[in-house]
């Protein structure tokens, strides 16, 4: 409890000190530095060398020891400088469904001096070193496994370096704003269309239409049901393939929140997400009806994105 409170306090302090922004330049305000494990071992080595110098009264060993002491102090400054002056800019991240991995693009640039041995990533994730050359911006993509729908609020990215000697670790907690929306995790429930009698507008929310006919094989898309996956074709190629069914063109349907009464909010949103995908796939016009929000039936990529965003950002009930 206390720990949580403390880490919360740390987070708030960090937010004040290094506020989230779309771009940021590292300086003494937001770079931290401490000796690394190798640095502590090096300190032990220096102590051993100093004892050798004292006990053998050896001037050259004194000189060597003091030179290495002096160099390690200089390296502290260099390690700090390896981060300071670095400009970070958040790139455009593509939306994805919750549970999938979103790649957060990060553009690193610097005006003067090389910046080597940079590690950028979320704590605990494996990362690769990058080097930034002055005048050339370096793009890296940081993978993040998403959990919830909505506007992505990533944890702070940790930017670390131990260059040049590995004796000190300098790091910064970078909060960058990524205006990316994570769609709800699709929950497959077959969308069946039927001509409804009750709804005067046209088709009912959840109805049975004509049975879909098998029309071919296409690439797997998120939200496709396990039943749709063409396992034989998938095995023959590198990626998953799905079976495609065609329904009658030109139909219109409403994807209605009310059709899923009795379920939890997130489940309903997930099913609706899956329906949006299925309807778009089937090539029918579909409208989305949520409490407070109604999107008129339409089709096409733009309409699909609008529906998915609405589902992702919906905050009623």
């Amino acid at each position: 409890m206390k720990r949580r409170w403390r880490s919360e306090r740390f987070r708030r302090w960090l937010d004040r000190r290094v506020p989230p922004a779309a771009a940021l330049a590292l300086s003494h305000r937001n770079v931290f530095i401490l000796p690394s494990a190798a640095g502590w071992v090096f300190a032990l080595l220096l102590i051993a060398m100093l004892l050798t110098a004292i006990n053998y009264q050896n001037s050259l060993v004194y000189a060597l020891t003091f030179w290495l002491v002096s160099m390690s102090l200089a390296s502290m400054w260099l390690t700090f400088r390896n981060l300071a002056g670095l400009h970070l800019r958040a790139g455009h991240a593509e939306s994805c469904f919750a549970g999938e991995t979103v790649f957060l693009p990060l553009r690193l640039s610097v005006k003067t001096g090389w910046r080597a041995g940079l590690l950028a990533g979320f704590p605990g994730d494996p990362v690769e070193q990058t080097t930034v050359v002055p005048g050339v911006s370096q793009d890296i993509r940081i993978p993040l496994t998403t959990r919830e729908r909505g506007v992505l609020r990533p944890r702070r990215i940790k930017l670390t370096t131990r260059y040049p000697f590995g004796l000190f670790t300098a790091w910064s907690w970078v909060a960058l704003e990524y205006p990316v929306v994570i769609y709800p995790r699709p929950e497959h429930l077959p969308l069946r269309l039927s001509s409804g009698a009750e709804d005067p507008e046209g088709e009912s929310a959840r109805g049975v239409g004509s049975d879909p006919e098998f029309s071919g094989i296409r690439d797997y898309r998120p939200g496709d049901s396990m039943k749709l996956i063409a396992w034989k074709h998938s095995a023959a190629s590198d990626s998953l393939k799905s079976k495609e069914y065609e329904t009658e063109e030109g139909g219109t349907c409403w994807l209605d929140w009310e059709a899923l009464t009795g379920e939890t909010t997130e489940y309903r949103l997930s099913v609706l997400t899956s329906w949006v995908l299925q309807a778009e796939e089937a090539g029918i016009r579909y409208g989305l009806s949520l409490p407070d929000v109604v999107l008129e039936p339409s089709r096409g990529e733009q309409h699909q994105t609008r529906c998915l965003r609405t589902l992702a950002l919906w905050e009623g009930r």
Binding site: W67, M71, L73, A116, G117, G166
Partner: peptide, 28 residues
């Protein structure tokens, strides 16, 4: 320290920074 999983970035100076650290450290 400068080399990652893909090895040393090409063109990254190695001798020069080492030399400059040594020189800078002389006064202290």
């Amino acid at each position: 320290q400068a080399s990652g999983a893909k090895g040393l970035p090409s063109g990254l100076p190695v001798l020069k920074p080492a030399l400059s650290v040594m020189l800078v450290s002389i006064p202290f």
